Amino acid sequence: MRAVVVGGGKVGYYLVKALIEKKHNVTLIEKNSTTCKKIAEELNVDVICGDGSDVEVLKDANIEEADVVAAVTGKDEENLVICQMAKVNFNINETIARINNPKNTAIFKALGVDKTVCSTQVICNLIEGEFNSEPLQVIESINSGEMVLVEAKIDKKSAWIGKSVEQLKLPKECLIISIVRCEKVIFPRGNEDIIEGDKVLIIINTNRKKDVEKSIIGG
């Protein structure tokens, strides 16, 4: 997966670092030349020194080849402009913007930004989740990583299809908190059946994640 990250501050730095560790192809755009030099020396990443809201700079970063663009500068207005340019000028399917003021969330959504987040790890998980084939996507870490909130996307191959919640063989350290079905949230009882297309949100101990994955794929 190829990602373009705009903004080389702390959020951008650790986001790029995390994506590189996951073997993704990343290009970073940052205005400050000193920051660019420092990141280029520390990380194995292509760094473009320039304004991420400049069309020519985006072209230099080969944005046309990107699967996702993440705008994580310290200014909400810049992140909005960058995401809109990625959509309008380069037809990027997936844009993610860092938001510093939560009050701007509705505005960003209304103006076409696909996802808005305020956490480096959440941004990374969103990007990762768009392009991996694992049955569980980690949404957020809880209690210093001891537990995780995960999303199970139920496709036609899932062993959970047609089973009720109470029939699922899950670890006791696991709690199904909701099912998203056709944009509606269901708070399931034991007799609620799982169907194809459901997104099941689960809280589980990190060390039991593999057990839940095996249950989903029928292992």
Rank of each mutant, 00 (worst) to 15 (best):
K23S: 13
V57R: 01
Y13H: 15
V6S: 01
E30P: 11
V117D: 01
V117P: 07
T27F: 01
E166W: 09
E166Y: 12
F108W: 02
N205W: 04
V185L: 09
V117Q: 03
M1L: 10
G162E: 02
A70G: 06
N191W: 10
E196I: 12
T73V: 08
S178Y: 07
E56M: 13
I39F: 03
G12T: 00
K10C: 08
H24L: 12
N62M: 13
D46Q: 13
K103P: 01
T35W: 10
A110V: 01
G145F: 05
I123S: 02
N93G: 10
G219A: 11
Q84L: 09
V16E: 03
T105V: 09
K10A: 12
N93L: 07
S215W: 03
L28V: 00
I142D: 05
E134G: 08
I63T: 00
T120W: 02
K156P: 11
D198T: 06
K59R: 11
C182D: 15
V200S: 04
I179N: 01
N44S: 15
V122Q: 08
R2I: 11
L80C: 13
D198H: 04
G74K: 14
N191T: 14
R2H: 07
G9Y: 01
N207E: 13
L149D: 00
S119T: 10
E140L: 12
P135Q: 00
D155E: 11
K172E: 15
N44R: 11
E41N: 15
I177F: 12
K210L: 05
S141W: 10
I139F: 02
G7A: 05
K103I: 06
I139L: 13
P135M: 06
R189L: 14
E166R: 13
Q137N: 15
V45E: 00
P188A: 01
I161L: 06
F90I: 01
L43G: 01
G129F: 10
A18G: 14
D76R: 10
E213R: 02
E77L: 09
Q167R: 11
V6K: 03
S53H: 04
E56N: 14
A66K: 04
F90T: 02
V72F: 05
V122L: 10
T34H: 15
G112H: 00
L111C: 05
E128G: 11
M147L: 11
D46N: 14
I142P: 09
V88T: 14
N32G: 07
L170I: 14
S119L: 09
S215Q: 04
P135E: 03
M85W: 00
T206V: 08
E94W: 04
K38G: 07
K31F: 02
A18H: 08
G190M: 02
L28N: 03
V122K: 15
E134A: 13
V11G: 01
G52H: 05
K75S: 14
V5D: 03
I217W: 06
V55R: 13
V57E: 00
E173V: 13
E65V: 11
I20N: 04
V185I: 12
P171E: 06
V165K: 04
I142S: 00
I99V: 15
S141H: 14
V26D: 05
Q121Y: 10
L15Q: 03
E65Y: 12
L80H: 00
Y13D: 12
K38Q: 14
E151H: 06
C118H: 11
A66V: 07
S141N: 15
G7L: 00
V5E: 03
L43S: 08
D198N: 13
